[in-house]
């Protein structure tokens, strides 16, 4: 099975004169065609791990191997839309001129439920709608892997629930692989096919989630809570 392989990833930052080891030797297999969730409390290194996989930063040691020809896209915690572009132009932001296909862009906008808002600018949209544009922008390049850094964290409960449903549907319909970072155990259990728990820059445990198995979900939740010492 193809995927992304992380081998002994280490990363540290200098804060003032102090060196902080954020990641202390991460070994991980991220399978394709599924949602892998990185779970952990704030400051545990999960965003750094995602940024390393996304190529936004270089690890101090170790390597990341993409098993398949990869085309990655990134969805950040904030939508990071270009404020001077409307929804349509923001969605096609990652596409080269020759790759732009109006029908395909329209269908992605429809999928994220923004039909009729093509000409709207980011400041005319709600937070949830902006985030959906960011997801559409990532989907538009037809990536094989999408990295998502707590993309629903700033959303209200109802919008978050709706977006989570849409994400599951998108993953199933388009067959992409998703690496999803969150600090919410419930969100991890709802979305993840595989959950990786990180604590203090190290992998604490990994779980495979069975679909529609509420009993297992409850047991997993209990385990994760115990492991994170909450």
């Amino acid at each position: 099975m193809a995927g992304i392989k992380l081998k002994n990833i280490q990363k540290s930052y200098m804060v003032g004169e102090r060196e902080i080891n954020v990641l202390k030797g991460i070994n991980l297999w991220i399978p394709e065609d599924s949602i892998t969730v990185i779970l952990g409390r704030s400051g545990c290194g999960k965003t750094t791990l995602l940024r390393l996989v996304g190529g936004l930063e270089e690890p101090d040691a170790g390597g990341i191997a993409f098993d398949v020809a990869h085309k990655t896209a990134f969805v950040f915690q904030e939508s990071r839309l270009m404020p001077w572009l409307n929804v349509w132009d923001n969605v096609k932001f990652g596409l080269k001129k020759q790759e732009c296909d109006d029908k395909a862009i329209q269908s992605i906008i429809d999928v994220v439920g923004l039909n009729g808002f093509e000409k709207a600018y980011p400041n005319q949209l709600s937070g949830g709608m902006q985030q959906r544009v960011a997801i559409a922008r990532a989907m538009a390049i037809h990536p094989s892997f999408i990295m998502m850094d707590e993309p629903f964290a700033a959303l209200d409960y109802f919008t978050r629930a709706q977006m989570q449903k849409e994400l599951i549907r998108l993953q199933r319909d388009c067959g992409v692989s998703i690496l999803f970072v969150t600090h919410s155990i419930d969100e991890a259990l709802l979305l993840g096919h595989k959950i990786v728990v990180i604590e203090n820059g190290q992998i604490k445990s990994e779980f495979v989630v069975e679909e529609n198995n509420e009993e297992q979900s409850l047991i997993l939740k209990k385990n994760i809570i115990e492991q994170l010492d909450l």
């Binding site: 190529g55 990655t72 896209a73 990134f74 950040f76 990071r80 932001f93 990652g94 390049i141």
Partner: peptide, 10 residues
């Protein structure tokens, strides 16, 4: 810088 990172991701 966050917008520039969007460019990096593409």
């Amino acid at each position: 810088k966050r917008l520039l990172e969007v460019g990096d991701t593409f």
